[in-house]
Design a binder for these strands. Structure first.
Length: 174
DNA sequence: ATTGAGATTGACT
DNA sequence: GTCAATCTCAATA
């Protein structure tokens, strides 16, 4: 939370501050892609922390995750919303939004992937050694500014309060 | 081989 | 508020 997520795709640099995330883990979490073991799609989730897991959701949109923890544990953090920073005009064109609707640039997991040009080709990239996608320090966030609640859009394991978001940040999805 | 559900979004009533 | 867009996976045959 508070870190900057950046991409460089075909020379276009875009980035945003992470303001909303959800945690997924390999055991005890029925909502996780890693819960039933490795598949061709979820293989990246079982690597050691630092890799980028991107998947296609509902056949239409992409979602980006940061793999965490040790190898074989299947834990990752889904990026759900960003506060736009660099390359806003590039993001607006990718999202096909008019100036009056830039508010909707990156306030959702599918939206931010479209804005930053993230798709399945970036799944498996190493955040620490990639020329196309990276993370960097941006803002120090106080714990008191981070709120939590149930994860959005899932029907299993809804009792875990593993959605985290910045208090009063206008870019949060809901 | 077929079917139904899913970590979403935008268009429409 | 409803619904369709259409890829991946697991369950069924």
């Amino acid at each position: 939370m508070g870190m900057k997520l950046s991409t460089r795709i075909n020379g276009h640099v875009t980035s945003g501050q992470i303001v909303e995330v959800e945690a997924y883990r390999g055991d005890k979490d029925e909502a996780s892609h890693s819960f039933r073991g490795k598949t061709k799609r979820s293989e990246v989730m079982f690597r050691e922390g630092g890799y980028c897991y991107v998947y296609l959701i509902y056949g239409m949109y992409h979602c980006v995750n940061i793999v965490t923890e040790k190898e074989d544990l299947g834990c990752a953090v889904l990026i759900r919303a960003l506060e736009p920073l660099d390359g806003i005009e590039t993001m607006r064109k990718r999202r096909k939004l008019t100036q009056s609707k830039v508010h909707y640039l990156t306030n959702g997991p599918g939206k931010l992937c479209q804005a930053l040009g993230i798709d399945k080709k970036l799944s498996g990239e190493d955040f620490l050694n990639s020329s196309r996608i990276s993370l960097s320090s941006y803002k120090k966030i106080k714990k008191s500014q981070i709120l939590s609640g149930p994860r959005i859009g899932i029907t299993k394991s809804t009792h875990f309060n593993w959605r985290f978001y910045l208090k009063d940040n206008p870019w949060v999805s809901k």
